[in-house]
Amino acid sequence: MLRRQRRAEQCVWFRFECDAQWFHNEIHDYGIVALSADRRRIAVLAATDTD
C-alpha cells in the first residue's frame, strides 16, 4: 500500500471542467487528471451523477 501511495504523491494532479451535454460543471461533476512523475503517463477521471 505504501508503494502506491508514494507513487500517487509523486504525481502532478489537475482538476478540469469541460463543455459537454453530460458534464454540467456542477458540484457532483468531477474532472481529475494525474500526470505521472516521469511525465509519460496520465490517468483521467471524468464522472457525474446528473441524470
Rank of each mutant, 00 (worst) to 15 (best):
I27H: 08
R15P: 00
R39Y: 02
F14M: 15
A37G: 00
I27A: 13
E26G: 09
I42W: 10
I32M: 06
Q21C: 02
M1S: 11
D29S: 08
A37N: 11
R3L: 15
A47Q: 02
Q21W: 11
I42P: 00
T48A: 04
V33D: 05
N25V: 07
R7L: 15
V33K: 01
A46V: 10
H28R: 06
A43L: 06
R4D: 04
Q10S: 10
R4S: 11
N25K: 13
F23C: 04
F14L: 14
Q21N: 11
F16S: 06
G31N: 11
Y30R: 13
D51S: 03
A46F: 01
F16G: 12
I32C: 11
R15Y: 14
D51Q: 08
R15M: 13
A47H: 10
A20E: 05
D19W: 04
E17R: 15
L2Y: 04
A46C: 13
D38W: 08
E9G: 01
A37T: 03
Y30E: 12
W13R: 07
D38E: 15
D29P: 07
L35C: 05
I42T: 15
T48M: 01
D29K: 04
L2R: 11
Q10G: 10
D19N: 12
D51F: 06
L35W: 10
A43F: 07
W22Q: 12
H24G: 00
D29T: 09
Y30Q: 13
L35S: 01
Q21H: 04
D51I: 04
Q21T: 10
I32L: 15
V44D: 03
T48S: 13
Q10I: 00
V12S: 14
R4C: 02
R41W: 15
D51T: 06
A47K: 02
A43T: 07
A34T: 06
T48Y: 02
D29C: 12
A43V: 10
L35G: 00
R40G: 01
R7F: 07
R40E: 13
A47D: 02
V44E: 05
V12R: 15
G31D: 10
V44G: 11
Q10H: 09
D19M: 06
W13T: 05
W22L: 12
D51V: 08
F23T: 01
E9K: 07
D49V: 06
D51E: 13
L2W: 03
I42A: 12
I32E: 13
M1D: 03
Q5K: 07
V44N: 09
A43G: 15
D49T: 12
A20P: 00
E9Q: 08
A47R: 10
A8F: 01
V33I: 14
N25Y: 01
E9T: 03
R3W: 14
A37E: 14
R39S: 12
R6E: 11
F14G: 10
I32K: 14
D19C: 13
E26I: 04
D49M: 10
H28Q: 08
D51P: 11
I32N: 14
Q10A: 06
R15N: 14
R6V: 09
D49P: 03
R41C: 10
T50A: 12
